[in-house]
Design a protein around this nucleic acid. Structure first.
Lengths: 145, 145
DNA sequence: TTACTAAATAAGAATAATTCCCATTTAAGA
DNA sequence: TCTTAAATGGGAATTATTCTTATTTAGTAA
């Protein structure tokens, strides 16, 4: 995502285009594995050494309110953040802190179908996400690239 | 769950049967809506006023390690705890702090089937839970009971 | 370009959930 | 009953996150 795309995204959401916000969006796209606020701060400070940690939190919170970013629940310690692209599920590794996105439209279809036929009494369902717990088995030896 | 059931559960998991642990198990069964550590402390102190908050945390952590209890993290504030009975999913209300259990064996069957036919490369799947976000619409007026 | 203003940010203090430490107590087995 | 490793109480320490306030800035209109 280039600068003008980011600026557009912010403007569409009635947010001022500040260097800090652009930097946070950049970080969210660059950092895989659903970064913590602290990881975003580290990334962002490479180019903006004075960017305050409080600003990172503020910015992420604002983005969540606007629906640009989603908070990711883990059963570990901190909050982690996920820039929203399309509906997707999460794979959680039980042995390391990896959280991977999982896209599967066929599965989404099945779930949508299932719950439209069998609604849950007393609940108005907005969104269904899978939390898939397992172990990441694909650790490859490092290559020179 | 009566005392001897709880004692059995603890012994089976190689844990000493202490009044504090029994009280925490009692609290987890009594409190609905996936209590926080603080809610457990409050409940437990009715009968054990000196029970330390640190002990509540220790006990819950120990139970999690043994698989007696599961941590439930929301995108809000604290860690919450869920005593494990059988496989189930969670309904999260977007408007209040309600987290409800959701049991559906037919759905579990469908998911099991789906992923056995279509495994995820690089991942060894242990468990699939649904995170169902929506709004609880069933708030009833209080009755005298 | 300049001036204006509401919004955003920097810096650091404050808050509070959770963890840690250690002296004392206790459950369970011999 | 005795012994000992494990558990607990009490409170201090840690630290992710929020809050506060003075300063700066993006966007707008003249």
């Amino acid at each position: 995502m280039n600068y003008s795309d980011i600026a557009k995204l912010l403007t569409e959401n009635e947010l001022k285009v500040t260097p800090q916000r652009v930097a946070v969006i950049d970080a969210l796209f660059a950092l895989k594995n659903h970064p913590t606020a602290d990881a975003v701060k580290e990334f962002v400070r490479k180019n903006h050494p004075n960017l305050a940690l409080g600003t990172v939190y503020n910015t992420l919170e604002t983005f969540c309110e606007k629906g640009i970013v989603r908070k990711v629940k883990t059963d570990r310690d901190f909050m982690r953040y996920d820039i929203i692209t399309q509906n997707h599920h999460h794979l959680y590794c039980g042995q390391c802190d990896r959280i991977e996105d999982f896209f599967d439209e066929e599965l989404d279809e099945i779930l949508l179908n299932y719950f439209s036929k069998k609604p849950i009494p007393g609940w108005d369902i907005k969104n269904i996400k899978l939390q898939i717990d397992g172990n990441y088995t694909n650790h490859k030896p490092p290559k020179n690239e």
